[in-house]
């Protein structure tokens, strides 16, 4: 399976996916760290993919959703955004609302 098909599988097969540098426990970048902390604080299950450990993902994900940087958060197969957007949504409460709706629906 080619990398784009693999990305599609991961993104569409999981309700909440975070592509980040490092892992939630050992983030390797401040932006990834803040984003995973916000997600964890919303108390919903999510899977994370470490793009530093997956060079193919790192090279190709920016083309998948036409978004140039990491981290990238996908909810229900849709790109929500990077660190700034996730943090703004976390602070105004819409992140939690959207995540809760996702978890209820699945």
């Amino acid at each position: 399976m080619d990398i784009m098909a693999q990305l599609k599988d991961v993104i569409e097969g999981n309700s909440v996916v975070l592509f980040m540098k490092g892992t939630p426990d050992f983030p390797q970048c401040g932006f990834s760290s803040r984003t995973s902390q916000a997600l964890t604080a919303c108390d919903v299950p999510y899977i994370s993919v470490d793009v530093l450990a997956e060079p193919d993902v790192r090279a190709n994900l920016p083309h998948y959703a036409d978004w140039p940087t990491f981290p990238q958060l996908f909810i229900e197969g849709e790109l929500v955004g990077g660190c700034d957007i996730v943090m703004e949504m976390y602070e105004n409460g819409t992140l939690k609302t959207q995540l809760d709706a996702t978890v209820k629906a699945s």
Binding site: W67, P68, T69, G81, G82, M89
Partner: peptide, 16 residues
């Protein structure tokens, strides 16, 4: 927000 950020990224694409 995502559309706003896309406009910014599009504008500076050559530097990214």
């Amino acid at each position: 927000l995502i559309k706003r950020h896309r406009l910014v990224y599009d504008a500076v694409d050559e530097l990214m």
